[in-house]
Design a protein around this nucleic acid. Sequence first.
DNA 1: TTATTTGCAAAAACTTTGCTGATAA
DNA 2: TTATCAGCAAAGTTTTTGCAAATAA
Lengths: 135, 135
Amino acid sequence: MRMTHQREIILQELKMAKDHPTADELFQRVRKHLPKISLGTVYRNLEILAEAQTIQKIEVGGRQKRFDGNPMPHYHVRCVQCGRVDDVPVGRIKALDSMALKPHGYKILDHHLEFTGICPACQEKGLLQHNKTLT
Amino acid sequence: MRMTHQREIILQELKMAKDHPTADELFQRVRKHLPKISLGTVYRNLEILAEAQTIQKIEVGGRQKRFDGNPMPHYHVRCVQCGRVDDVPVGRIKALDSMALKPHGYKILDHHLEFTGICPACQEKGLLQHNKTLT
DNA sequence: TTATTTGCAAAAACTTTGCTGATAA
DNA sequence: TTATCAGCAAAGTTTTTGCAAATAA
């Protein structure tokens, strides 16, 4: 795998991201450094980097795929209003995998736990909206 | 909400399904009873029925959305090879929601736990493939 | 009767891919 | 030098939507 300038910036931008951007969100950020980069390049690199386990593709709900600069498995929380995804600072619960040994003869490989909720920014927005309604 | 013939068949077909079909899979099954039905109608009805909590839209990984005739929350296992989704016969773990109270001021509403693995049919296919290689 | 729903087709949203010129090693 | 990669644009996949005709209640 060659370390092209584009790949370097994509990786750097994802690693520094505090959220878990979609391909398009990351494209917008990378574009500020590389105005000529194309969305296809971002998609291709995210795929390659995830394959190499340098980053991870997040396996959860929501319309679009999201990416995480941290390749270690961990849990996420997703805002049902704006789609934002953050880390949950709790380690993997190993006991969970054994729970699922029973069903239908599946060979269990992994599990994904995702919390859903309202992020601070959307809670704030909700309050403002509510206050407006009262006024 | 009117109980149209289309809606009735869609619901019946989903309730009787042992798997958790995508909109298109369900469309193919419903088509056998109603050859003139359109995919758009299936999508619209699944949306309405999920809104009414008669069914549920499954919020997990994989490319396409899947639907479940059982509106009660429960966990699923997904085959990473063929995408098939089955139920995991284990009740909801209430303790999980409180785990996530810490992060970033999110207001937690729910959680989704998905196991990934290989379904019996794909395990079988894998073996056949392997035997073929050996021969 | 009439508000809701359907079928159809077009569009939207998201992602992948083929090709040609550019480039890292 | 050359296998890999980028940019561009076209195409693929999945889901949503506008509209006129049909229909449940």
